[in-house]
Design a protein around this nucleic acid. Structure first.
Lengths: 142, 142
DNA sequence: TATTGTTATACTCTATAACTATA
DNA sequence: TATAGTTATAGAGTATAACAATA
């Protein structure tokens, strides 16, 4: 018998590709992760952002580069420490985040509508669990 | 109130990055998708593989290139139709698939072990639903 | 002509190693 | 010296447009 973890892995890949296929022109999950975090938690150091989003620091530098180029975030030097870069979301970034989340959510909801109500309830109950799963080790690691 | 779809999107990104972080040297979800499909369903046309994995045909050509280079799959020309390329998984590919799935599954199971039993049951119940979600529109599209 | 797949090209996302600037 | 971030470089993964080969 396969464990829950082993069954989750293949499904993850399919879900990600499904979203990409349906909304090819949407901001990526990487972009959404950063914009969402900045929207929820406010301006953050670049390194802090890298840790929270499970990326390397150079990787986050590059992602923030692209987002800044596209006007979705803004870099500001920290007044307290000249080494530190604070990243904040712009109004355009906030709008892009909200719009994209709504759009992708609707696409998924459309598919969900094709499932029995009991299935939808199962998924509903599991969403907080999946979320908790992603937070678990972050707390341990600090 | 946010819909299930809207809540699923951010979680997906975090889960993918979590796996990448914990098992940086593992085959990617794209690789696993192809190897898994070939393992389950046997040799397939390249175009068929592209459709099933929600990739473009050139994208699948390139992915198969890398997998063949790494000895995980093999290309064979179709005897019936000279345009067609059949892709099959090698023994090494089958082994890599099984090993990776087990490893990633164990990593997720470790985290799952930190959750209450009720949460684990919720997730268990939702896994077939997520799987059904990814299959829904494929059937519609054909 | 239509279908199947590849080539050419370009972009995002990601990492590691080496570097710079500040503390 | 240690920390925060960037630059250099490389590779996976992906797409669209143009092409070649076969039917």
């Amino acid at each position: 018998m396969e464990t829950a973890g082993g069954r989750l892995v293949p499904v993850l890949g399919q879900l990600v590709r499904l979203l990409r296929e349906d909304a090819a022109d949407s901001p990526s999950l990487a972009t959404l992760g950063v914009l969402g975090r900045l929207t929820r938690d406010g301006a953050q150091r670049l390194g802090e952002l890298a840790r929270a989003e499970r990326a390397s620091q150079p990787g986050m530098t590059q992602l923030v580069d692209r987002l800044a180029r596209d006007g979705l975030v803004r870099r500001t030097p920290s007044p307290d420490d000249g080494r530190v870069v604070l990243v904040e979301v712009t109004a355009a970034g906030r709008a892009a985040y909200a719009d994209t989340l709504r759009r992708l959510g609707e696409l998924l909801d459309l598919r969900l509508a094709g499932l029995p109500a009991a299935d939808r309830h199962s998924l509903d109950a599991a969403l907080p669990v999946l979320d908790a799963l992603t937070r678990l080790d972050l707390e341990v690691a600090r």
